[in-house]
């Protein structure tokens, strides 16, 4: 990938890395489908969401190239993620203890 970075704007990876990421995503999908067949009890939800989180991390970082973009975008992203987290957390203070 190195030479491509020099040829084009530094923050854009080439075809190869996209295809690699795509293959990774397919692999993760097959893992999550396989794992879903196994009964993990309380961990089922956790494992499924963990894999989904890894997949979305790949998409956000590489496909959406936030990894190569302006740093402020990462701040924005964590801000909205944190807001979501707070909303969930506080709502569940009601739901769990009701």
């Amino acid at each position: 990938m190195e030479h491509e970075k020099h040829e084009h704007k530094a923050h854009h990876p080439g075809y190869g890395i996209y295809i690699l990421v795509w293959m990774g995503l397919l692999a993760l999908t097959s893992i999550t489908v396989t794992v879903a067949g196994i009964d993990l009890g309380a961990y089922t939800l956790f494992v499924a969401l963990l894999i989904a989180a890894i997949k979305s991390g790949l998409v956000i970082n590489i496909f959406m190239h936030i990894k190569f973009d302006e740093p402020i975008f990462k701040v924005f992203l964590s801000l909205s993620g944190f807001t979501l987290f707070v909303i969930f957390l506080l709502t569940f203070f009601d739901v769990i203890y009701r």
Binding site: H12, P13, Y15, Y18, I19, W22, L25, L26, T29, V33
Partner: peptide, 28 residues
């Protein structure tokens, strides 16, 4: 139907790839 769900997942992931590739292509 897990089958349909999985199939649609694969379709969408692939379509994400092709969009990314189209941007790489226009840069080249």
């Amino acid at each position: 139907d897990t089958g349909i769900g999985t199939l649609n997942t694969l379709i969408l992931l692939t379509s994400s790839l092709t969009v990314a590739l189209s941007i790489a292509a226009i840069q080249k």
